[in-house]
Write a protein that binds this DNA or RNA. Sequence first.
DNA 1: GGTGTTTGCCAACATCTGTTGACATCCCTC
DNA 2: GAGGGATGTCAACAGATGTTGGCAAACACC
Lengths: 199, 199
Amino acid sequence: MNGSDSTPTAPGSGAPRRSDATRGAILAAARERFATDGYERATIRAIAKDANIDPSMVMRYYRNKEGLFAAAVAIDLRLPDVSGADRRQDAGRILVEHFLDMWENNEVLTALLRVGVTNQAGAERMQGILRDQLLPVARQVCPDLEQVPARAALMASQLLGLALTRYVLRMPPAVGLARAEIVAWLAPTVQRYLTAPSP
Amino acid sequence: MNGSDSTPTAPGSGAPRRSDATRGAILAAARERFATDGYERATIRAIAKDANIDPSMVMRYYRNKEGLFAAAVAIDLRLPDVSGADRRQDAGRILVEHFLDMWENNEVLTALLRVGVTNQAGAERMQGILRDQLLPVARQVCPDLEQVPARAALMASQLLGLALTRYVLRMPPAVGLARAEIVAWLAPTVQRYLTAPSP
DNA sequence: GGTGTTTGCCAACATCTGTTGACATCCCTC
DNA sequence: GAGGGATGTCAACAGATGTTGGCAAACACC
């Protein structure tokens, strides 16, 4: 439940508009549709119907479908700091737990993953998240700076792979895993990708 | 390069038809389009154009778009046997190498992954592959039979996660990984998921 | 050589898509 | 209370999409 985050279009600036409720409803509906249907099948008409407004309002407030997607899917992973000496050796567990928390109650992540697979803009957005958010974390704990991108990519492959099988494809055995199980299995993997000496 | 596999529709049965060349061309074009565009954006018209035939031929030979997809994407991972005592402790490396071989020169896998994310039928197909092909491999090497599904799911999460970041999203650091690097990093992970005692 | 089936192309259909513009209505300001 | 901008509704557009049926040519078989 993301709710209505202050000002939908220009966060933190501009006076509140009378249409903020509508804008928020559109964004909420868009997030849900993009998450369940992907980019192509999430039609503007369906989103507008969910938000109980006219399709033309979507165009007025977000220019076009791409603009709507850009506004609806803004992701801040809020990755925790793991640079402390004590936390560094626990980075795997901390990150896996944080990732699960994020995915379990944030449909925007599922939306972006679904869209990123079939839409170029979505894919680039995901590349940006890896570069701007995941990579810095790897830099905090990785010994050799030159290996940071590779290690971040490895971490991403495992975490996104879990999200893919569990939240998108909903493979029964992946859905059936308990949270504690996932942490116990994946934490050492991520820890190794981040800190183990290059094999 | 999959080429034209004998009889496209009913494998291993029926006399060769005069239209086999056309059928094959359609399937090849469909595979490529589904792989690059996903299900929705891979239009029948575009596929027909690639195959240099009329769109109506696609409908004649494969009923509808779903039928075309079902015919175009039939996957046999040809997973190697790892039940031997010596191979069992090498299962991780063997499977990762085999997976890379498969993905590097088989666009059908990319097609299925792209479609599985936005299409229910595609998702079910992938679930079937996990159940019918990946799970038996896990059963060969996993000590506790009850844990087989969970371990197969873990293996799938890592392998599909790599495919996702490298072949679908094409995240630069994931694309930049050398084959040997991937094997060196992922083999121990898969090995642990399959054979390590439950953590 | 005539017959029936297969193969292919063409035109069209109904529907859905993103998108646009005109018009009515509300609310705030002077 | 009049004016003006913001907000919302309605109808329509142009194009694309899956799908269908009819019709000509090529072929196989007697």
